[in-house]
């Protein structure tokens, strides 16, 4: 089956098996390995990317379902060597340790602020309910997202 998508602004076109998951397509066909896989039950969010601007778990979308869509992965956030404000906030607040959940967490957080630019702490926590991190205990992730929101507001 043919799949044509725009990933981080670049057009991609490939022939894939229908059963190819979007995450496998991005990692193995397009070669963008920043998006990670942490589970097989759509629970962990490590694979989160933006599909037409909204966060989705790319392990739970077939590549063929994404045909024609715009996809943003973690590799597409920074521009001109400048970290995206969300990435910068994670760095400033030590919102990552092993970094494995980080790409998905950052993408989920970007989508969260897109939908709710001024969330409360409780809203941030709830908004990240679909992303698991085993290292940080979330404290600094939540701080980072709140700081990014504040930074965007000011």
């Amino acid at each position: 089956m043919k799949v044509a998508v725009t990933v981080n602004g670049t057009k991609q076109e490939h022939e894939v098996e229908p059963r190819t998951l979007l995450v496998h397509y991005l990692r193995e066909v397009v070669g963008l390995t920043g998006t990670n896989i942490g589970c097989d039950t759509s629970s962990c969010g490590a694979c989160t990317v933006l599909l037409d601007g909204q966060s989705v778990k790319s392990c739970t979308v077939l590549a063929v379902q994404a045909d024609g869509a715009e996809i943003t992965t973690i590799e597409g956030l920074a521009s001109d060597g400048q970290l995206h404000p969300m990435q910068e906030a994670f760095r400033q607040h030590h919102g990552l340790q092993c970094g494995y959940c980080t790409p998905g967490m950052v993408m989920a957080a970007v989508s969260l602020l897109d939908e709710n630019p001024a969330p409360t702490e409780a809203e941030v926590r709830e908004g990240l309910e679909g992303n698991l991190c085993r290292c940080t205990g979330y404290h600094n992730i939540v701080k980072a997202v709140l700081a990014a929101a504040e930074g965007a507001a000011s």
């Binding site: 990692r27 390995t33 920043g34 590799e75 970094g99 790409p103």
Partner: peptide, 21 residues
């Protein structure tokens, strides 16, 4: 001091085993 490890991990440049081609 902010971590040196972070920029690579934050941009998807960290290479875990499954990322190796």
């Amino acid at each position: 001091l902010l971590r040196k490890e972070d920029p690579a991990l934050l941009t998807g440049e960290g290479r875990y085993v499954d990322d190796l081609v």
